[in-house]
């Protein structure tokens, strides 16, 4: 594993833990899109079905299990335990507009027309756009808690670092996967606007708020 991959995985883990911790500590999921979290739970579930078919390493298995469990725990906290604090009115992104086209694309453009392969492709495509309900919610309310922005930054950083990981793997291992690369690029681009706000506002100690 190269350095980019390593930092990326821990950045991803940090994002997941930051979010869980924030909800647990504040006993509230205000400002968090439950829809994005459901999409991430679907992403992990459909991608890590390989837990049942192939063993890579203890690290690999543990991370996959942690990602899946944390994402389900987050969904549970939002929709069950702290449901009263869930801001459903502002979480109004129509997820069917993401899931249906992404599902169609996964069936049409994949490496192999097999169930597990299509589900893997679906999870890659879905992950690239799964954050949209959350970004939509922030644009709707015009602001985000600072801790939420740290979560988003770690999540965006993770995908940006995977791009470097793929460049590395292409040069040193001759490996590349066009589906993952294109989806990863799309995903990273979606965070660019947010990265800009994070650097110019949050890192200077200001709250992230958008002009009305």
């Amino acid at each position: 594993m190269n350095i980019f991959r390593g930092i990326a995985d821990f950045s991803h883990l940090a994002a997941i833990i930051i979010l869980l911790h924030k909800i647990w500590k504040s006993r509230s999921c205000a400002g968090i899109s439950g829809k994005s979290q459901i999409l991430f739970a679907i992403v992990f579930t459909t991608r890590y079905l390989d837990l049942l078919t192939s063993f890579i390493s203890l690290y690999n298995t543990s991370m996959k299990v942690i990602y899946i469990s944390c994402s389900y725990a987050t969904v549970y906290l939002i929709y069950m335990k702290f449901r009263a604090t869930y801001d459903g009115n502002h979480d109004s992104f129509r997820v069917e507009f993401l899931v249906v086209p992404v599902g169609g694309l996964a069936v049409l453009i994949n490496h192999d027309f097999a169930l597990l392969e299509i589900l893997w492709t679906f999870s890659i495509y879905l992950e690239s756009v799964a954050i949209l309900p959350q970004l939509f919610m922030i644009s709707k309310t015009g602001e985000a808690e600072t801790i939420t922005t740290h979560y988003l930054f770690c999540l965006g950083l993770y995908r940006a670092l995977y791009l470097f990981n793929w460049i590395w793997r292409f040069y040193f291992e001759g490996f590349f996967d066009m589906i993952a690369i294109v989806a990863g690029l799309v995903q990273t681009v979606l965070y660019c606007d947010f990265f800009y706000l994070y650097v110019t506002k949050v890192l200077k100690g200001k709250k992230l708020s958008l002009p009305a």
């Binding site: 690999n60 991370m63 490496h111 793997r169």
Partner: peptide, 10 residues
């Protein structure tokens, strides 16, 4: 076809 790298990356 076998896609080992796929199971490796998270």
């Amino acid at each position: 076809r076998e896609f080992t790298y796929r199971h490796d990356e998270l």
